[in-house]
Design a binder for these strands. Sequence first.
DNA 1: AAAATTACTTACTTGTAAGTAAGTAAGCAA
DNA 2: TTGCTTACTTACTTACAAGTAAGTAATTTT
Lengths: 186, 186
Amino acid sequence: MQDTREKIIALADQLIRTKGYNAFSYKDISDPLEIKNAAIHYHFPTKTDLGVAVVDFETERFKEHTAKWSGMPEDKQLKQLFETFNRKHKEGLVCLMGTLSPDYKTFPESLQEKVTEMSAAFANWTSQCLENGRKKGFFAFDGDAYDRALLVLSNLLASLLMSRVMGPKTYGKISGQLYKDLLKKN
Amino acid sequence: MQDTREKIIALADQLIRTKGYNAFSYKDISDPLEIKNAAIHYHFPTKTDLGVAVVDFETERFKEHTAKWSGMPEDKQLKQLFETFNRKHKEGLVCLMGTLSPDYKTFPESLQEKVTEMSAAFANWTSQCLENGRKKGFFAFDGDAYDRALLVLSNLLASLLMSRVMGPKTYGKISGQLYKDLLKKN
DNA sequence: AAAATTACTTACTTGTAAGTAAGTAAGCAA
DNA sequence: TTGCTTACTTACTTACAAGTAAGTAATTTT
């Protein structure tokens, strides 16, 4: 019955993305899963443990995805990244980094480290993808690839957040223009 | 003693930016101001009322600032916007939209509306600034000015958030590259 | 001078979040 | 078949957040 543990992580993941880390409680998980809150404490003694598990899960999933894409040309790889965000947008969810970063200062160190680790994984992969893609002529952009990667990620992250507040069309306007900019030849 | 009311708003503003809306409590305000929590309820019966006051305050301040800048050439006006974010970054604070958007779904409608109103004020001003600036040759960018404004704001917003997690240099890398891109002539 | 208003304090209530201690039923292991 | 582990439940505790009712001292209005 490792099933319950995985269900808890999946639900916590979704709750963090919809309500934010500090606004969800064990009751939000125990009710829909029809278990007692103590059952969650059995799998994750503290809320921090659960937070760490969710972030680890997402970091792992990102690494699995990018490993699968590694044979594709870089423009297709980047397209896959955009598609991942498109799906999140359609589900009405924001990305983990976007929802966790405002609350970052309220986290214990162990969770902060995991969030930083995850963000580094995103940035490093995107940086490599952009750098290699530019060398091969798929992308055209100025400046350092790592800086450009931060720019791309910041747009994707914020476009999901801003869509919540400014309406669903916001996401497409930002990500669409961003993608065009990268492919554009001067 | 309208002073207390203003101090409450200023402190709440800072707390929302550091801990997030759902993580701060009336005690975080009453302790440093050396008043009782009931005194805060006197000025702001509910937490929502306080949230609305903070957002209104920031929207108003933004409108005052941009009104002051309105005589400047557009490149200087945009520079002022960047300077505003630079200052926030130096103080270790994120922007209100950045911290409120992940929690947006937990807000009552009245607060949601105020946040949406504030975001519209930001986007409309930036859009106008970019459009007029491009006409006069200060800026060079492709696509609709409103879409570009969303891109710029998303980068500024997210660069403050990401700096928390990825280190303070992140802000400069993103905002620096963003600014160069806008001034760049092809 | 009396009445009302402002800006609070004192002292609660209610609700809920996080966490824990002790017990239990089912399965497996020696 | 006895004992140990797994995956829980029952029934708590502690802490604190949000909000309120009633009182008060100082000022302001009439």
